[in-house]
């Protein structure tokens, strides 16, 4: 977080140097500050700012792509005459622990292809998911855990 503040500071310094405090200049300053931090980060010892930013960006890209796919799938199933959905309700064991992590995972799961989170067990160990296009249950659970959950934890922890 320390380096994030430095990045914000660098962005403000950039707008002062340019002399125009606009949104565009602020974002440009932020970008330039980030590049500076990429270069000088090794001097700080162990700080995980830039890898974390990369991981967040990668997760955002992955999530947007999944969301696009899910909408394509839903649109195809809604608009064609045949119904392809073969829904099931599947219990997925959770590795996420805190309330925030579970909330984010459930939200992202609802927006990604064919799945809708229905409920979390009272002991927070199991997430019940309504899935529409699952052929192999074990593989589906594995995909959720290694795909979305692992990536989310990579960003959050």
């Amino acid at each position: 977080m320390n380096l994030f503040l430095l990045n914000v500071l660098l962005a403000i310094v950039w707008t002062m140097a340019v002399g125009r405090f606009t949104f565009q200049q602020l974002s440009l300053g932020f970008l330039l500050g980030f590049l500076v931090i990429v270069v000088i980060e090794p001097l700080w010892g162990k700080q995980a700012y830039t890898p974390r930013v990369w991981r967040t960006l990668r997760f955002t890209g992955f999530f947007l792509w999944e969301m696009f796919l899910s909408n394509l799938q839903i649109a195809y199933d809604v608009l064609t005459h045949r119904l392809y959905a073969r829904p099931q309700i599947i219990a997925v064991p959770l590795d996420t622990r805190t309330a925030a992590e579970i909330t984010l995972l459930a939200n992202f799961l609802t927006l990604t292809p064919g799945t809708l989170s229905l409920d979390v067990s009272t002991d927070r160990q199991t997430l019940y998911v309504h899935a529409m296009y699952v052929k192999d249950r074990e593989r589906f659970i594995d995909e959720v855990k290694r795909g979305l959950e692992a990536r989310l934890l990579e960003v959050l922890r």
Partner: peptide
């Protein structure tokens, strides 16, 4: 943030109020 949360709450309420899902297998 809000649309999935609303869906989640409504899904839980619907299941509890006895609307059976049309599914092949129901872990709930």
């Amino acid at each position: 943030l809000t649309t999935p949360v609303a869906a989640h709450l409504l899904g839980r309420a619907a299941y509890l109020s006895g609307i059976r899902p049309w599914v092949l297998h129901d872990d709930l």
